[in-house]
Amino acid sequence: MGTGPRAAARQSGVLLSLAAALALLGILNSPDMVRRLLLVAACDAALALVAFLLPWQRTGRYSPAVLGLAGFAVLGLSTWSFGGVAAGTGPFLVLLYAWAALHFPRWILLAYVAPATLAYLLPLIITGQPPLILGSAAILMPVALAVALLIEAQARHLRDDRERLARIERWRSAMVNTLAHDVRGPLSSVQIVLDELREDASGVEAGMLDMALRQTARINRLADALLDAQRIDSSGRLKLDRQEHPAGVLVRDALTYLRPDEDIRVEVDPSLTIYVDKQRFEQILLNLCTNALRYGKAPVVIRIGRDGGVDRLEVRDHGAGIPEGLRDSLFGQFAVGGPEGVGLGLWIVRQFALAHGGEAVAEHRDPGVAMVVTFPVLTRP
């Protein structure tokens, strides 16, 4: 499937191969026409080989249209082989027209009218068919052309829509990249100023500066999330820098980005190490904790444990929970959004988990829900 000369040629090759197979089957019903049917099958097979083997991608955009002309000629040969019986010629003629309509503009379809009509009528005239049979062309050809023009109009409409969506996607990609990159420069300057002010601040002023610093860190993470989403969309995969890290240290480092007064409890074996990309793991944990605090109910409990060949990160809240039918959709793009988010957090969590070779799921708890992310254990030789 697809567009372009190569796809058009291969599709015609499939149709011609089918025609060759049907010609060979026709021998069973008409053993007295073996030579003629073998000739038809050989012509169809030869055209199919040309369609499959020639480097059509190096030729002109509409060059495979010549295969349609050759196909009409073989259809005429087939009608002659069957003694003027056009029961199989008509459907295949319409099928060739439909194939052409998917790949070529209407002027080619109109140019096909004369050779297609000739390929249909000439064998009927040669075999001496009555006028009633010859008159069937007056019905078949307009129907074939009408079907082809309808398909061509719809295919053209779909191509225009696809090109429009491609332009929108390029614009969206450029906008996201520009936004994410351009916000970092001014934000870094703001953060430096806030850090300087925080050193000499105390009391209420220190608390306000701490809040401002947390918000700048949050905007930074949002910019990172937008860039990560863009990279995932464009390449489908991320390059990770995986190393072994103490699980407890990773969790404590990540939680420094959150407010210290949040009700978060950590249950991690101090001796456990996990094989992850540190930056991506921190973002996974922060996204899960942020969602648990925003949509669930405290306390939020973080657990990391080993289960066979995987390490399980579990972030649980004690809220109302999530219905089973909605749990899988939570990890879709823009599935969970609101005034404080754009709905990318859980989707990015799953993409990072998949990049590690693991998975991200939502599990029921009583009360609440647990977001579970798995990471394969490092295998040593």
Rank of each mutant, 00 (worst) to 15 (best):
P5G: 09
A41I: 04
H356E: 11
A298Q: 10
P260I: 08
L330H: 11
V310H: 10
G309M: 12
L330P: 03
R280A: 14
G325C: 03
A370D: 07
P64I: 10
F352C: 13
T379H: 15
D366V: 12
V349T: 11
Y257F: 05
A7V: 00
A65F: 13
D233Q: 13
I125E: 00
R106I: 08
P270Q: 01
W347L: 00
W80S: 11
W56C: 04
V143P: 01
R184Y: 06
R218C: 03
T117I: 01
L96Q: 06
R327P: 00
S136A: 15
N177Y: 15
D366A: 14
G309L: 12
F72R: 09
T273N: 08
I219K: 02
H181N: 15
L240M: 11
A114R: 07
W171V: 15
M211Y: 14
P131G: 07
E314L: 14
L286W: 04
L272F: 09
L187F: 02
D241S: 15
A155Y: 03
L179P: 02
C289N: 11
V190C: 03
T79W: 03
I168V: 15
H318R: 15
D44M: 10
H157V: 07
P381Q: 10
Y275L: 08
Q279K: 11
P186D: 09
G305K: 09
Y257S: 15
A360G: 02
P131N: 02
M1W: 05
R184V: 13
P115K: 09
D32Y: 02
G296S: 06
D311K: 05
G296C: 08
V183N: 10
D317N: 12
S234T: 11
G135D: 01
T256I: 10
A119H: 04
A201C: 05
Q129S: 14
A101S: 14
M175C: 15
V310T: 09
R35V: 13
I108F: 14
V251P: 00
S202R: 12
E282G: 14
L110I: 15
T216C: 12
Y275S: 14
S189A: 14
P339L: 12
E244S: 15
A101M: 10
G357T: 13
A86D: 07
S235H: 07
V183W: 08
W347Y: 06
D253Y: 12
L67E: 04
A41T: 03
V204G: 07
G296M: 02
L77N: 06
R365W: 05
G83K: 06
L288K: 09
N29Q: 09
S202I: 10
A73W: 05
T117D: 01
G357P: 11
A298Y: 02
L149K: 08
Q129I: 04
V268D: 00
P323N: 10
L150N: 09
D241C: 13
A9Q: 02
P367Q: 10
T290I: 02
R303N: 11
L344Q: 02
V34Q: 04
L132F: 11
G341C: 05
P270R: 06
